[in-house]
């Protein structure tokens, strides 16, 4: 029986410190490689971050960040007690939810189907064409969508031809989520599939060769090789999207909604925008922005730990 090696606490700490500094020394070149990005984040992201205090101020440009009076949580209170708050929250989450449910998987499925194509030229053609709508401005895609669903638009014309009643899609709140979601997917699925296509390109061909020798069919190859290989990318993008649950941009919605569908279409950002038209208030929008960010960030951390626990893939 060997005598156990007993170390004093001090010696243990010392050893740990030594190990740590060894580790750091070993990675010194890595730190050098990281330096440009770290500098960028320090100077252009962290240095201006003192500006976030305006969420707690009654900020006026004339006074500046340092002299504007503090009002504590007043803007937060004002937002949370707003008559519309719960509705805005519900709509924001629902629209994001639709995006997660339908918008998120679409580019993945599209990329996988594209990956199954054997005609290389056709594949590249489809790829190029589907990515193009991303470059058409939101203004035009939104207006085209509205035209399609208007009373004398294509959809209602077809409905009339087959003898179904016309539907006023854009004056009935219940159609807003689907119309909006379809419009977003229409514009962006091709663009969003690029990252998956690139990841698919990194799958080792030898794996497929081995699978074929083992007699695996295409479905099995997809299930056991392709999907596991792009899973980390899918998971990371999913985590990032969950961490954006409360950020629904105002531009596209503003272009598509009208007062008769506010009930489903009015989201946090559009409301803050309209309020800002009454009285341009940096502090209020900063406070709402901070509220969104805090919730988003908590969601991100939650999603990340879940993923770490279940799948081994995580942001950090």
């Amino acid at each position: 029986m060997k005598a156990p090696i007993v170390k004093t606490a001090y010696e243990g700490k010392l050893a740990a410190k030594k190990r740590m500094s060894d580790e750091i020394w070993q990675h010194r070149h890595i730190y050098v490689i990281l330096l440009p990005a770290v500098l960028f984040y320090l100077l252009f992201c962290y240095l201006p971050m003192f500006g976030t205090v305006i969420a707690f101020q009654k900020f006026s440009v004339a006074k500046g960040v340092f002299k504007s009076p503090f009002v504590g949580l007043e803007h937060f209170r004002s937002f949370l007690s707003d008559y519309n708050f719960w509705r805005l929250l519900r709509n924001t989450i629902s629209i994001s939810g639709y995006g997660l449910l339908f918008g998120f998987p679409t580019p993945i499925i599209f990329a996988l189907l594209l990956n199954e194509l054997k005609a290389k030229r056709f594949k590249r053609l489809v790829q190029t064409v589907t990515y193009m709508p991303h470059f058409i401005s939101v203004v035009i895609v939104a207006s085209l969508t509205l035209t399609f669903v208007s009373n004398d638009g294509v959809i209602n014309t077809i409905r009339a031809m087959i003898g179904v009643d016309k539907v006023s899609f854009m004056s009935n709140p219940k159609y807003f989520y689907p119309v909006y979601t379809v419009s977003v997917i229409w514009q962006n699925f091709g663009w969003n599939s690029i990252i998956y296509l690139a990841t698919l390109a990194s799958v080792d061909v030898e794996l497929y060769e081995a699978a074929v020798i083992d007699g695996a069919n295409r479905w099995k190859q997809l299930l056991h090789i392709t999907l596991p290989c792009i899973a980390p990318t899918i998971i990371i993008l999913l985590i990032l999207q969950i961490g954006n649950l409360l950020s629904v941009g105002f531009e596209r919605i503003m272009l598509m909604y009208n007062p008769s569908v506010y009930e489903r279409a009015d989201v946090i950002s559009t409301y803050v925008y309209r309020r800002g038209l009454l009285n341009g208030d940096y502090s209020y929008s900063a406070a709402v922005g901070m509220f969104n960010s805090i919730i988003n960030f908590i969601l991100l951390i939650g999603a990340n730990s879940m993923s770490k626990y279940f799948s081994d893939t995580s942001l950090w």
Partner: peptide, 17 residues
């Protein structure tokens, strides 16, 4: 780094930097 995705100084402080 993730923090910077959510919290930024806003237009004016960034401009000043």
């Amino acid at each position: 780094i993730m923090v910077t995705m959510y919290f930024s100084g806003g237009l004016i402080p960034t401009y000043l930097v």
